[in-house]
Design a binder for these strands. Structure first.
Length: 205
DNA sequence: TGCCAGGCCCTCTTTAGGGCCTT
C-alpha cells in the first residue's frame, strides 16, 4: 500500500514570514485510485482576512471567528497525516505554512513534499497552463466542488496525483510509482525526463 | 479591507529578467 497525504491550505496571504496564517486546511489520504479518508477544518487565524482573499476563497472573518484555533487544528492535521508522504499543488507554498505552524506547536518533522505543479509541468507540457483548475479540465478529472476551498482543492489534487501516476506508469511501463521516483521526476528538467527515470530505475536515485 | 514571497522555468540567458503558481 502506498498512501499519500494530499494537503491544501487556505490562508490570509502568501507568506507566513509577513504574518499570513492559515484559515482552512484539508488532507486527503489516497491509496492508488482510492480515497481512503479526509480531514478538513476551518481555523481562527487570529489576524484579519484581507477583503480580496475573502472574495477569492469565500472564507470570511465571520466564518473563522468561532472556528478552533490554528494550533488545535494543526495538531489534529499532523496526527491525521502521520508518517505518510505528502503532496500539494505548488508544494513550496503549502510546505511554508505546514512547517511554520508545526514549528509553533513544536510538532515539526522533516518531510519531503512531492509537488503536483512541478510534476504536471514535466508530464503535461501541452496544457494551456498548470493551474489546478485548468489541469482538472484538461485531464478530465472529477469535479470536486468550489475551487479555493481546501477540501475541494485537496481532492482535485489527489485525482491529479492519480492521473500523474497513471501517466508515468504508462509512459515508462512501470507497475508502480514510488515517492522517490516522483521526487526525482519533479527535480529534473522535463527535457531530461526519460534519462532521469532510467537513472532512477537503475540506481534508485 | 492596504503593503509584504519565493522557487521554478524559459529565453532575446548564464555578470538577468520576467512569467508562472499558490492565497
Amino acid at each position: 500500500m502506498s498512501v499519500y497525504a494530499v494537503i491544501d491550505f487556505e490562508t490570509t496571504g502568501l507568506s507566513p514570514e509577513y504574518g499570513a496564517r492559515p484559515t482552512e486546511i484539508a488532507v486527503v489520504l489516497i491509496d492508488g485510485d482510492r480515497i481512503l479518508d479526509r480531514y478538513q477544518s476551518l481555523m481562527n487565524p487570529g489576524v484579519p482576512i484581507p477583503y480580496d482573499i475573502q472574495t477569492l476563497t469565500g472564507i470570511t472573518n465571520a466564518m473563522v471567528r468561532s472556528a478552533p484555533k490554528v494550533e488545535t487544528v494543526m495538531a489534529e492535521a499532523s496526527d491525521f497525516v502521520g508518517d505518510h508522504p505528502m503532496l500539494a499543488h505548488n508544494a513550496a507554498f503549502d510546505r511554508k505554512f505546514w512547517d511554520t505552524e508545526l514549528q509553533r506547536i513544536k510538532r515539526w518533522q522533516q518531510k519531503e513534499f512531492a509537488c503536483s505543479l512541478l510534476l504536471a509541468r514535466r508530464l503535461f507540457p501541452q496544457a494551456l497552463n498548470h493551474k489546478l483548475a485548468t489541469l482538472v479540465r484538461t485531464l478530465h478529472l472529477p469535479a470536486t466542488g468550489r475551487y479555493h476551498r481546501a477540501l475541494a482543492d485537496a481532492e482535485a489534487t489527489a485525482y491529479l496525483l492519480q492521473r500523474i501516476k497513471q501517466e508515468i506508469q504508462h509512459r515508462f511501463g512501470l507497475s508502480a510509482v514510488s515517492h522517490e521516483l516522483l521526487i526525482a521526476i519533479q527535480s529534473t528538467n522535463r527535457n531530461k525526463l526519460e534519462a532521469c527515470v532510467e537513472r532512477h530505475l537503475n540506481t534508485g536515485k
